[in-house]
Amino acid sequence: MSGVQVLYKPLGLAFGMAGGALAGALFNRTWKAVAGQDDAPDAHDEERDWGEILAAAALQGAIFAVVRAAVDRGGAIGVRRVTGRWPG
């Protein structure tokens, strides 16, 4: 493992945690705007139907994937700018 990879591990963890918090907040705001509800359904919510639960899960997954990719890519670019090497 190179020095850049060792440096990137804790930064990647911190970026991931921040990205998770950002994605959660973005999902909650998006769900409220799309569905007009404060709380998104989960799989054990018996008052919600399959369509609503699956739509919420798909939206949440898409938001988390996009935020994770953006955070990972941004972190890697930042490490390259500082060290001159890609943290691959």
Rank of each mutant, 00 (worst) to 15 (best):
V4A: 09
L7W: 02
L7Q: 07
Y8H: 10
K9V: 11
K9I: 12
P10D: 05
P10Y: 01
L11Y: 09
L13R: 13
A14F: 09
F15G: 08
G16D: 13
A18K: 09
A18F: 08
A18L: 15
G19W: 00
G19V: 05
G20Q: 09
G20V: 05
F27M: 02
N28A: 15
R29T: 11
R29S: 14
R29A: 15
T30W: 01
T30K: 02
W31Y: 14
K32I: 04
K32M: 09
A33D: 08
A33G: 05
V34R: 02
A35N: 01
G36W: 11
Q37H: 10
D39L: 14
P41S: 06
D42H: 14
D42W: 05
A43T: 10
D45G: 09
E47N: 13
E47G: 12
G51V: 02
G51A: 04
A57W: 03
A58L: 11
Q60G: 04
Q60V: 06
G61L: 00
A62P: 09
A62L: 14
I63N: 01
F64D: 07
F64A: 00
A65K: 13
A65M: 08
V66T: 06
V67W: 06
A69F: 02
V71S: 11
R73G: 10
I77W: 08
I77K: 06
G78V: 06
V79H: 04
V79N: 06
V79A: 13
R80W: 10
G84T: 04
R85H: 14
P87A: 08
